[in-house]
Design a protein around this nucleic acid. Sequence first.
DNA 1: ATGCACCCTGTAGCAACTAGAGGGTCAAGC
DNA 2: GCTTGACCCTCTAGTTGCTACAGGGTGCAT
Lengths: 131, 131
Amino acid sequence: MVMTIGTLGKATGTKAETIRYYEKIGLLPPPSRSGGNYRSYGEAELGRLSFIRRARQLGFSLDQIRALLELSEDRGRDCATVDALARGHLAEVERKIADLTALQRELAAMIASCHGGTVGSCRIIEALGPC
Amino acid sequence: MVMTIGTLGKATGTKAETIRYYEKIGLLPPPSRSGGNYRSYGEAELGRLSFIRRARQLGFSLDQIRALLELSEDRGRDCATVDALARGHLAEVERKIADLTALQRELAAMIASCHGGTVGSCRIIEALGPC
DNA sequence: ATGCACCCTGTAGCAACTAGAGGGTCAAGC
DNA sequence: GCTTGACCCTCTAGTTGCTACAGGGTGCAT
């Protein structure tokens, strides 16, 4: 089953530009070309790109994905490194949630303190202004 | 009280480069200069930069801050616009928290399913791989 | 043969900084 | 008065993960 870049894109929910970008940064290997110089992809590329997209949806960075792909190629290797990578990412996500939750509380408090009126007496502006 | 860029930076927790950047994009007005062509800042700039930094800490974008600054200059105006801006930002933060929480659950489940062994049988890699 | 959808390369843009090169200024200490 | 070091200046380019052109070529149907 041979695909053009557009077909592969539709199959994985990726724009053609993004696929070319992944190729440029070495996340996808340069594929073979058709007569008219079109990129042509098969099952292997479909699998690899699906992996990348699923990992992106889980918030992994392209560098982390590069590492995951490399690790996944060596099927005999201990998967502790993979585990560590995923745990590190989870920790990062949890830190972000904590940060945003703190932010949310502050914002909500600020908004609750505003009871309308003019900007001159606005508690939101006041909360941001000089102490 | 006259300050150089470094002093202003220390007072507001901002790097000199960032202050110059804010000036370049028009968030801070170009300050007067000393004999040796050094930027010199006073209380007004300190207040404005503090406002910017506090708003950044609350996650407002520079464009939102630009709007807030403009609104805050017109003390007689109704503060409804300010309120709407803050509420919009809060909604955005809450959406991000929801997204990240969903992510966290997926990641945690993926990690929990991995019981060690080799990459070949790793559930994490499997979860990312082809269906 | 001509339209249209698709493909190609290459470059520039987004947010919000950060880092560096290559130089000038200023105050203190000797 | 001269050096040393900390600071300042401008300008450019890098970061992340794409996205959006511009200016062309290809492939298929009518």
